[in-house]
Design a protein around this nucleic acid. Sequence first.
DNA 1: GGTCGTTATATTTTCTCAAACATAACGCTT
DNA 2: AAGCGTTATGTTTGAGAAAATATAACGACC
Lengths: 119, 119
Amino acid sequence: MQELLHPDLPFRLNGRLWIEGPTERFMGIGRLELLEKIDRLGSISRAAQEMQMSYKRAWDLVTSMNQQAREPLVSTQAGGKQGGGAVVTEAGQQMIREFTALQARFQAFLAEESRHLAQ
Amino acid sequence: MQELLHPDLPFRLNGRLWIEGPTERFMGIGRLELLEKIDRLGSISRAAQEMQMSYKRAWDLVTSMNQQAREPLVSTQAGGKQGGGAVVTEAGQQMIREFTALQARFQAFLAEESRHLAQ
DNA sequence: GGTCGTTATATTTTCTCAAACATAACGCTT
DNA sequence: AAGCGTTATGTTTGAGAAAATATAACGACC
C-alpha cells in the first residue's frame, strides 16, 4: 500500500467503533468518555463542561443510553446536597469496563494493520 | 455485554475504517465504492449518479484522492468520444484490491467481536 | 423561606456539510 | 460550425446536527 501513497505526506489508519440500536446509537467512544467523566466527577454538567460539550447534549446522550440499556447506566438526582448529581451505576461501570476492552482490541487491530500498511 | 442491553431491542456492532492524511481523508469505504463504480462505468458522472451523489462531490473526491496519491488513481479526459470519461489507473486498481482486502479483515474483526458480544 | 447548584426540557440560533445550481472548457462526431 | 456528453469549477441553497439560550423543578442547607 505504501507505494500508492504520496511520499511527502504522513498517512494514518484510523477508525471508529460503536454499538447501534434500531433507531439510534447506543455506545461509542464519545459516550464512553462521557460515562468515565461522570463517574469521576459525579455530575453531568461538570462532565459536559470538561468535554467542551453543552449540558443539553450530554444529558441527551445519558438519556439515550439509559433508555436503551436493560437498566440505567447513570442514576441522577435533581436537587439535594450540592444541587444534585449523577452516579454511574454498577451496570454503567461494567459497560465502561467492557467497551474499554473492546476499544483496546480495536486499537490493537488498527496498530497491526498499520504495520502491514507501512511495509 | 448482552446482559447490559435492553432485551427487546436488536443491537449491532458497527464501525468505520479509513486512511487519513495530515489535512483530509484519503481513503474510506465511500471512496472505495466510488473507485469501483468509475472502474465499471468509465465515467465520474455516471458513477456519481449511481451513488445518488452530486457530480461535484464525486469529482471533489477524485481530486482529493489523486492529489494525495503518489500517482493518480483515476485518469480523466474532458471532451472526445462520448464527451470524455474516466478510467481507474493501475495504481487505482491496486488501491481497490488492497483497501477491499483491509475492509474484509475489518468486517471479520467486527463479526468475531459481535460473537463475543452476543454471548 | 430563600439560596444554591444541579437535573430536566423546550426553543432558538449557529455551524457545517452535502446538494443543487450554474457555467465554461474540452474534443470527438456529424 | 454546431451538437453532444463529459470533465472542471465556482456559487448558492438546504437540511441536519450541535450549540446557545431560556426556564422550570428539585431538594438539601442555612
